[in-house]
Write a protein that binds this DNA or RNA. Structure first.
Lengths: 350, 350
DNA sequence: TTGTACGCGTTATCAG
DNA sequence: CTGATAACGCGTACAA
């Protein structure tokens, strides 16, 4: 590997000059044009690549962020990741990504590894499972700028970027109501989950505004399970239950897309048609939502936007720390408005 | 940030002793137990975290791999990633992941960034788009151990890990044939794509073995488009075309799941039922395949396995370079056997 | 333009 | 046996 010293020797100047010229530092103005050119040429010829490790050591920054995901296969994660990557690319930061797989041990080990690598900031793409495990402390301990994306941790104190769940729930209800649905079944999220509570609040808010009564027997709660794809099974199972009890409903609002997809499976397997016999609405707009037939109507979380806003927030915090302008990051969660995507699983009341 | 010097001072020993003890180096045997304990305790109390940048600089290794993905949202990528992460976690390597988004410029920039960061090896999760752009040279240039996953680049010279496409094609045909299907439509992959060619070869091999004639009019080729999700649209469009021409077929074998999902959409929208009127088989077994209704029958690529094998291969190559045992990595592509997953989109000929 | 101390941990060599 | 000293890896930045 060719070092800056090699280049210096070959160009017959000092390493200082090489560094100055290659970085186009202010002092480069005082370097003779001919010398500059020579250095540039030699460096290229020799295929010199500065060692970022050494640079980071010296500059005390790594141009690196750590991203902790709860499950890389979850489309929610990858959506956020895409946005995060984009924002990082724009400022030439590189991400370490660590897939926690919903395991506490991994979370802690990865966190340690990332800190040892001197990442400048941390992004945590979370789901409800991050709740049980009180890793929040681990996060709060380290002074390093951190942002949580995707779910609201009660009193975590960590800056958060989320979708406006309440608005989403409201919009979904509005849509179903407009189509004439009055008997609506709900597959709510796990009870302790803040997001679930907020979505439900949006639903209730809408119902109140239209004096629509929500039938308690049509409201079921998802258990909180560790596997993200288990949402599918849960949705299928709960819907099957509803069907088994002969409950009447013409529409179903699911906690998220995975749940909705499971619900559809149960409906179709019972010989019902979606949306003719029952409309279904999801939440998230993960990739599979659009790929199934019929395509899922859902409340789209602006995943890429969540990711990029989160990165911007972390970067801002990093700068704030550097400049010691302590009025760094907003304490309030950053809330991003979702968007209803009407596709094929909803239709007028049959 | 607390450094090794701080710990040394606080434990009243030299930095050397601290390093030796904390790393449990061979020399640690010669350190008095009491001293050891003191160092350990002080280090923990002070929350000392070794600076991996400095360590890497000294040891001339980074314990880091670079992973280039063509599109982080593609379920194929994330499947491979999961396996890769797992294998890396086992040896405490951390991945930089760079999402190329099928853009040449990004590929080159990221590649440069990764090399500057002294990643020890490179993993390229590729799809057909990596073909057009002759980035292979860029890869071959750098001496750094590299493995390509997921698609076979003709004469690239870069070690590759792939699924046995031919076996997969064969298995899919076998399944359809056993169900009684004889009029089978094919949505082949892009013509220049090696994987597509191999799958097709598997199909033909089976047909020959049963003296089954393949109707040329039922064989269509996908265009090669840049967006991974475009496979869906292409599948839908080509199937629509087939239907429009009133071609008779009782089963359809798609290039991959995305294509298959698109085909199903077209079939259902034409009033046909899957699998009653037409069976459909995909290839890959990406997550959405199992989530749709009906669930897709498909040839599963062992994605995690591809990822972990790829990482193991890179690590092996890294070690080979270090030990200068030049008989490093196999020149032959590593081929992993796929598995037919029978779900709901295939049934006996109607 | 250059010399050189510095950032931080590792390890070979040396002294007690 | 026990521990310290110092060179090293590489690029940066300031004084000269």
């Amino acid at each position: 590997m060719v070092t800056i010293r090699d280049v210096a020797k070959a160009s017959r100047v000092s390493t200082a000059s090489v560094s100055i010229v290659l970085n186009n530092a202010p002092l480069a103005r005082h370097v003779a044009a001919a010398t500059k050119e020579r250095i540039l040429r030699v460096a290229k010829e020799m295929g010199y690549r500065p060692n970022v490790l050494a640079r980071s050591l010296r500059r005390q920054n790594s141009h690196t962020l750590g991203i902790l995901t709860f499950d890389i296969r979850d489309p929610f994660c990858t959506g956020v990741l895409e946005g995060a990557f984009e924002a990082m690319y724009a400022v030439s930061y590189l991400p370490f990504v660590a897939d926690v797989r919903n395991e506490r041990k991994r979370f802690e080990q990865y966190l340690e590894m990332l800190l040892e690598r001197r990442v400048e900031g941390l992004l945590v793409i979370a789901n409800w499972l991050f709740m049980d495990i009180d890793l929040l402390n681990d996060l709060a301990q380290n002074k390093i700028p951190t942002v949580i994306v995707g779910t609201l941790m009660p009193q975590s104190g960590v800056p958060t970027v989320i979708t406006d769940n309440e608005a989403g729930g409201y919009a979904a209800m509005e849509h179903l109501y407009a189509l004439g649905h009055r008997k609506i079944a709900f597959l709510r999220g796990p009870r302790m989950l803040t997001d679930a509570a907020l979505r439900w609040r949006g639903v209730r808010a809408f119902a109140r505004s239209r004096k629509l009564r929500l039938e308690p027997k049509l409201v079921l709660d998802l258990p909180s399970l560790p596997d993200p794809f288990s949402g599918f099974e849960a949705g299928k199972h709960l819907t099957g239950q509803l069907l088994h009890q002969n409950r009447r409903f013409t529409a179903l609002l699911a906690y998220d897309d995975m749940t909705a997809l499971g619900a559809i499976r149960a409906l179709v397997q019972s010989g019902l048609s979606v949306p003719n016999d029952c409309s279904v609405v999801g939440f998230d707009d993960i990739a599979p939502a659009a790929l199934g037939t019929p395509a899922l109507t859902t409340v789209r979380q602006p995943l890429e936007r969540l990711g990029s806003v989160a990165v911007d927030t972390v970067l801002k915090a990093i700068r704030a720390v550097k400049d010691k302008t302590l009025h760094g990051v907003a304490r309030q969660p950053l809330v991003i408005v979702p968007e209803l995507v009407v596709r094929e699983t909803t239709g007028p009341r049959g």
